[in-house]
Structure formats: C-alpha cells, structure tokens
Design a protein around this nucleic acid. Structure first.
Length: 572
RNA sequence: UACCCCGUGGUGUAAUUGGUAACACUAGGGCUUUUGACGCCCUCAUUCUAGGUUCAAGUCCUAGCGGGGUAGCCA
C-alpha cells in the first residue's frame, strides 16, 4: 500500500503532490500538531467474538491497522467479550486468523475486555462512592417505561437516591451471587431527561449467570458495552477509538465515564459502515443463512465473510485495495458488488498463472492429426510477464472446446468457430471448420476440423482447448450473487430478506475438462483459466491429484455484454 | 413528531480549507490484441432546493427539503 507521509508540518520537503486525506486522517493530523496524547497514534480493532468477520469488518481492520502503520503508531486486537451468552472461543480463533490473514499485525497486543473485569469492578465501586452510580431494582419492562420515549423525557427510578452505603452493599451482593439473574442492575446516575436516551441512567452491570469463554464462572455480573468500551480503550492507552456511525449517540457516554473516572480519555470517532449490493451484512442475517442452510457454512464462497472470500479465492491484497478504494467518510453509502470483483481481477491478472480449462466441453476432431499422434505446444504462463515462464500442452486428434465457442451459423461478429470459419487454438495453431455431427435432437455433438500449424496466419478469434486424451476431469464451482436483488434488506410486504435469495447462485460443473498440468494444482493456488475467469483450488475439497476449483471471478466479457444487449451488434 | 449525523455525476471518493468541479469504477464510443482479457484514448455534473454575504461559494450564513441513526439488563 502506498506510504503517505503523515506529518503535516515539517515534511514539506517531500515534493509529492498532496494526497487527499480523509476526515479521520485530518483529525489525527490536527491532534498531532496540537500535541495531544504525547503525539502518539494508537488504534484498535474491537470485535465481539460472537460470529465470523465479514468484509465490513475488513474495512475497519484496514482503517485501524492502516492508520497505526501510517503514523508509526500501534494497533491492538481486543475482543469485546462482555456478553458471555453469545460469545465462544471458536469465534475468537477464527477472528484472530482472519485479522492476521488480512495483514493487520497486533504484535504482542492481544487483549480481552474480560482482562479488565477486576479493574472495571473497582471503578464501578469508585463511581458509587462518588454518588455517580446506583443499584436499581427496576426490571427490564419497568426500566423501559421509566426511560421515556424518543420525544418525551424519562423519570427517575425510585431507587435512584439510595445511600452510598446501601449501593455499595447491594453491588457487592450482586457480585457475590445473592440475587437472581436480572433482579438488579447497577446504573450510572446521569440525567433521565436527556434528549440522548443513552444518558438516561444507562445500565453498567447486569446479573447474568453464564459461562464465560475466558473467565469461566468467576463472575455472575457482567459490565455493559457502554461501561466497558471507553475504559478498555483507556487502559490500553488508545488515542483514537474508531467505530461506526451507530455509536455516535454513545459518544457522550463514552466521554462521561472517562471523565467521571478521571482516566486517560481516548477520542471516539465514527465512520460509515460498509454496505454492498446483492448482499446482507448483519451478523444476525449471516447467521440465519448458515443456520437455515441457505449456504454451506460460514466459509461458503458466496458469503461476504472473510472466510467465504478467502475460500472463493480473494486475496488479502485485493481486499485491502478494495477497502482503500471505498474510502472513509460519514456518508451512508452502498458500494457496488462489482468493485470487489474488480479488485481481485486487478491482483490476479497480475499474479495468477494462465491455464486452459473447458467448462462445458464440445468434442472437436482434428481430422488431419493421426490417432496416437501428439504435438507439444508451448504456452506462456503469463502474456505480460515472461518471467513466469512457459509450459507444455499436448495437442491430439480429439480435443474439447467450449460449447459456447461454437455456433453453427454464427453471425458475422461471432469470431469463434462456425460453419466454414477458422479460429485460432490458443498457443497451437489454426483450425478450419469442416463437418458438423448432430444427434437425433439436432444438437451439435461433434465438429470435425483440420489443423493448420501455421502460426502466422491471421484469424479474428482465439479460443481455449484441451486434449481429450490428456485432460483431467474436475469439479468446478461457479458462483453468482447470493441475492437476486441489489438491496436484499428491502424485502417486499410480508417477505424477508430470505425471499430475495438467488436460486441460481451456485452451479456445480462435475466434469469440466482441464489441461493436464492442473492435476498438480495445490490447494490454495490461483489460476486464470484463459478467457473464462480466475479459479482457486479449493483448500477444503481438493485432494492430491484431484483438485476442485472455485471460480473467484469471471473475466470481463464484452462479447457476452453485447450479446445480452441483443442489439444489431450480433447479427449483421 | 425529540436529539444526533449526513446530502458533490449511475456508484464511491476529491477539490490547495472562499479562487472557477478532479480521480476511480460503471456505461457508451474507438484503438490494440494469439485471452472479445489486459492496456490505451474519448464521452457523460445547473455540487438537494431557495434566498443571502462576496470581485469570487461545492466550501460561509439563513430557511426549507431529503436520507440515516437512537427508546437491549446486545455490541
């Protein structure tokens, strides 16, 4: 990634043209000039371990880790694990793996909010002693009632004015397990008439007997997000606490706790979360897709989870580039799904070795090549990068070409094989179309051609092919959008986002014909099958000598586009 | 009918902080081509509206309109 110089003041020597800086960089630049936080930059990524990471998290990871790197600061990974009811070690493991894969390095700074439970408890006691927190008996329903509404003020809890001594004693008993789940809460004493609902005496602690993935059964009371997050940032000396827009209304609370406690006060900054067309992004919905088997797990290549994208064949580099391109603002926006495809194509175009693979085979017999004869063709592994070398591809009498590359009476603009036409076999030579064999249904089942090794002959089209004798058969999976509508969240009356699923999002080709070298493809390798797309040897289902390929992305296809538009371009 | 945030092309971001709308993607057109790929060139905006300040406004002011968020003992 490009290294942008950070320092606003003395770096004028670098004659580079001023790269535009997003609003968070501008805030940090100003903070640095003002000498805030000893001129440090320290960020963090704070996921709750209650699900798998998705592309939206990647934006946050790239942002936070990127800022730390850019300013020569630090980046922490902290699990916000304050709600044991939803959290699991499995998620912790997968999140660490995904963050690392994305290239964000937390070095030795892996933390858990649960590391701070003791400190948080002591601070709560401190707030009680200062008359800023109290134990409340209101149950959830009553509390909601007392809270008031969006437009009207709330009213004070009848328990708001308990003595410090009583509060201390009750809180201590809460911790000791003397009350039932939900019986009492500890609340911050702020302002029940505040127009910001978050300030209407928010809950700091609730009683919840649940096994915590790290602290086990040590605690039966757990701190809330609002009471935990800012202080955790503070403990870790975070300088800039970056989160998404929906926390804007929580910022006054974040500030209130840090101020009330008199501790290091990081700055919360909110940015817009990522939305992408043809998909849903909420953890809840992704979970539903998995639970109801609409997809084959969290790592289904159609999912925009990091695991899904990885298995689809997206590279970390392409995801970073995507996040960079998307930008950082406070504007709610919807990014076109094709940007993701574009980002992988850009990366894979440069790095993926070329191969030939026929997805839907049509047999072609080269009548002037003898049975048993084998010609060796030298094919380049990359058209623009000779350093990637060449490979040998066998050509024999019987070959397969793509069904779509033959059209009996192809129109003038159809540059592939057609009656009376000629086409180039990539890296091999030219074939001239001869006899066409059909079955009873009138479908073309075999085409006879003559082979002409003259490489210098000019023809308009070039197609890919494989030797029928040498090709390997492999399973190839093609993916389309998981959802059929741009914004699946907008469901019709009486329907849910699930009704917008695309029934054709997965197509499995059991018997694609691939050039022989592909038998050695290692799980996790990327290839471009020329003219058809980028493919990734599935790391789960591939076995030695028998790879399974997932299509990462198609190649751009202006012919298909022209055809789809139907206009006169085709027939002429 | 409360509070907070946000309104620049089809999409996403820029605009030396008041100086004459830029970049990327898409779309359309063309060139190139042993991938109809890649690459290259060209085309596409009364900056939400209405007033105002100014020599000069996307940037400042006023009013309106539109979009989003918020009433978990979730994060």
């Amino acid at each position: 990634m490009s290294k942008k110089t950070a320092a606003p003041k003395d770096s004028c020597d670098s004659a580079e043209k001023a790269v535009s800086r997003h609003f968070i960089q501008q805030i940090i630049d100003a903070d640095l000039v003002a000498g805030k936080s000893e001129r440090r930059v320290h960020t963090r990524f704070p996921p709750e371990p209650n699900g798998y990471l998705h592309i939206g998290h990647a934006k946050s990871i790239c942002l936070n880790a990127g800022l730390a790197r850019e300013y020569g600061g630090k980046f922490n990974l902290r699990f916000d694990d304050t709600n044991p009811a939803k959290e699991e070690q499995e998620y912790v493991d997968s999140i660490m793996d995904d963050v690392r894969w994305l290239g964000a390095d937390w070095e030795d700074r892996l933390f858990f909010s649960s590391d701070y439970f003791d400190q948080l408890y002591d601070w709560a006691v401190q707030l009680i002693e200062a008359g800023k927190a109290y134990v409340c008996d209101l149950d959830a329903d009553a509390m909601r009632e007392y809270r008031g509404s969006l437009t009207g003020p709330g009213k004070n809890s009848p328990f708001r004015d308990r003595s410090v001594e009583e509060n201390l004693e009750l809180f201590s008993k809460m911790k000791a397990g003397e009350f039932a789940d939900g019986a009492l809460t500890l609340r911050a004493k702020i302002d029940m008439t505040s127009p910001n609902l978050n300030l209407r005496d928010p809950v700091m602690y609730r009683i919840k007997r649940a096994h915590h993935h790290r602290t086990g059964d040590k605690w039966c009371i757990y701190p809330s997000y609002d009471y935990t997050h800012g202080q955790s940032d503070s403990i870790e000396s975070i300088t800039h606490s970056i989160c998404t827009l929906e926390f804007e209304n929580h910022r006054p609370l974040y500030d209130w706790f840090c101020d009330a406690l008199g501790i290091h006060h990081p700055q919360q900054i909110e940015f817009a979360r990522l939305n992408i067309t043809y998909t849903v992004m909420s953890k809840r919905k992704l979970l539903l897709l998995v639970q109801e088997n609409h997809v084959n797990g969290w790592d289904d290549p159609r999912m925009l989870t990091i695991r899904g994208l990885r298995r689809r064949g997206y590279t970390a580099e392409s995801i970073r580039a995507f996040c960079e391109r998307v930008g950082v603002t406070k504007v709610n926006s919807m990014i076109d799904r094709s940007w993701l495809e574009d980002a992988v194509r850009e990366d894979l175009n440069e790095h993926a070795p070329r191969r030939m693979g026929v997805l839907r085979p049509l047999k072609v017999v080269l009548t002037n090549i003898a049975e048993g004869e084998q010609r060796i063709c030298e094919a380049s592994n990359h058209p623009k990068n000779p350093e990637m070398g060449t490979r040998e591809v066998p050509l024999t009498r019987e070959i397969y070409i793509e069904q779509g590359d033959f059209m009996e009476d192809g129109p003038k603009k159809f540059f592939r094989l057609k009656t009376g036409g000629a086409v180039r076999l990539r890296s091999a030579g030219i074939i001239d179309c001869g006899e066409i064999l059909k079955n009873d249904a009138g479908e073309v089942v075999e085409v006879h051609c003559t082979f002409d090794p003259d490489m210098s002959r000019k023809v308009k089209g070039t197609i890919h092919w494989v030797s029928a004798e040498h090709a390997i058969s492999a399973e190839v999976r093609l993916y389309d959008h998981l959802f059929a509508t741009e914004n699946p969240d907008k469901a019709a009356e009486g329907e849910t986002f699930l009704d917008n699923l695309n029934p054709a999002s997965l197509e499995v080709l059991a018997e694609a014909k691939l050039e022989p070298l592909l038998a050695n493809a290692q799980a996790g390798e990327h290839f471009q099958f020329e003219r058809t797309g980028y493919f990734y040897a599935d790391p789960v289902d591939s076995i030695d000598g028998k790879p399974v390929f997932n299509r990462t992305a198609t190649l751009r296809d202006s012919w298909a586009k022209a055809k789809a538009k139907g206009k006169g371009n085709v027939k002429k």
